[in-house]
């Protein structure tokens, strides 16, 4: 880490940390010994050029890929995520670039996909009946709490929604269930100006709640607006970790492209 890590983070272990992760795809080296740490109530932005290994890094942190080498720690204890469900089980939620929503299922079904609520009593235990009404009610409530007003009706299939609304579903799902860490991979890519601002507000609200947020973005002004720390990924390695105070946007871009050493 750089010397400008000034807060009380030294006292408590980071909620999520990665140590020297290596991931190769055949001859292509995706990650070449990358380390990263994020604390509760902190926004860590990850920036980097295309092919720098941002998405691979995120996938390793969320169980979508298993790193070849390296250690991932949760609250200082080593964990192994072999599949996305493992990360979800410990309160790490992700908005993937592809959004990972099922077009034919409705909003509520997508929010509760893989964590369906069953009916109380025998219907739920013996007959394994899902409680559609309860899930819809909770989804509506969660969207309301998150201030996402673009989605009024949770019974609409995802495919009937606009690109921005789909992204809102994915972001809402992660925000609603991410109790420890929320990872957002280009969450504003399909959004207009107003919706983007909304997502940034949401990120700050998660931060207030003490959730750690990892934000991957190409949008430098956004990154510098919300991030506490900025992890710069370059050629499969961490080039530097800076803060919006310590470096300018121009510096960040220079480090990202290799025009300037960290």
């Amino acid at each position: 880490m750089n010397s400008n890590n000034q807060d009380a983070s030294a006292a408590t272990p980071p909620v999520l940390s990665a140590h020297r992760l290596v991931k190769t795809f055949g001859h292509v080296v995706g990650l070449d010994g990358v380390s990263l740490e994020v604390h509760a109530g902190e926004v860590l932005a990850v920036i980097g050029d295309n092919g720098a290994g941002k998405s691979t890094l995120i996938k390793c942190l969320t169980g979508a890929e298993v790193p070849d080498e390296g250690v991932i720690k949760l609250d200082g204890k080593e964990v192994q995520f072999r599949r996305p469900q493992d990360a979800r089980d410990v309160g790490i939620e992700t908005v993937y670039q592809t959004l990972a929503v099922s077009p034919a299922l409705d909003v509520a079904a997508n929010m509760y996909l893989g964590r369906e609520i069953r009916r109380p009593g025998v219907l739920g235990t013996a007959f394994r009946m899902v409680d559609t009404k309860e899930m819809r009610a909770r989804a509506t409530e969660q969207l309301h709490q998150l201030g996402i007003s673009t989605l009024q009706d949770v019974t609409v299939p995802i495919e009937n929604l606009s690109g921005g609304q789909r992204q809102a579903v994915a972001v809402a799902r992660a925000a609603a269930f991410g109790s420890r860490v929320v990872v957002l991979d280009e969450p504003t890519a399909a959004l207009g100006v107003r919706e983007s601002n909304h997502v940034l507000e949401l990120i700050l609200r998660l931060k207030e709640k003490g959730v750690a947020v990892i934000l991957i973005s190409h949008n430098m002004p956004q990154v510098f607006e919300v991030a506490d720390h900025i992890h710069i990924q370059r050629l499969g390695k961490r080039a530097a970790t800076i803060t919006p105070e310590s470096h300018s946007m121009t510096d960040a871009v220079a480090i990202m492209t290799g025009a300037k050493a960290a």
Partner: peptide, 18 residues
Amino acid sequence: RHVYAVGDDREAARLTGI
């Protein structure tokens, strides 16, 4: 629901923990 999700978009289903 998981059967539909897998048929709909397999990678999305995997990423949502199915």
